[in-house]
């Protein structure tokens, strides 16, 4: 069973199977040393750039700003949720998100 993943409306939200699931304007805590020098970035999600999957995990690349240090830019791939039984389950927004490490 395929899952349809899209960035829509100028990067305002992530569509998963034609439903609005993940949206801008959230604050995410990131363990993303490549993004800024903070131990944990405090990222305002301003725009979604790309959406993809790694196994069952749905990942996004985001344009945003760390409000702790002011760094702006596009993140590496970040997990936002998982497809389980054909349904999207969003990860707890208050948890720290780690960029993909190859």
């Amino acid at each position: 069973m395929t899952t349809r993943l899209r960035v829509l409306d100028d990067g305002a939200w992530i569509s998963i199977d034609d439903g609005r699931e993940v949206r801008v304007s959230e604050l995410w805590r990131l363990d993303a040393p490549d993004f800024c020098g903070c131990d944990l970035a405090d990222l305002v999600v301003e725009n979604f750039q790309e959406v993809g999957v790694d196994g069952s995990r749905v990942e996004v690349r985001v344009y945003g700003q760390c409000i702790a240090c002011g760094e702006t830019g596009i993140t590496d791939w970040l997990p936002v949720g998982r497809i389980r039984g054909g349904e999207f389950v969003e990860f707890d927004r208050s948890c720290v998100r780690r960029t993909r490490r190859d």
Binding site: D9, R20, E46
Partner: peptide
């Protein structure tokens, strides 16, 4: 703004 718009932050 966020009253109706998907993209707005505030």
């Amino acid at each position: 703004g966020t009253e109706f718009c998907s993209l707005s932050i505030v």
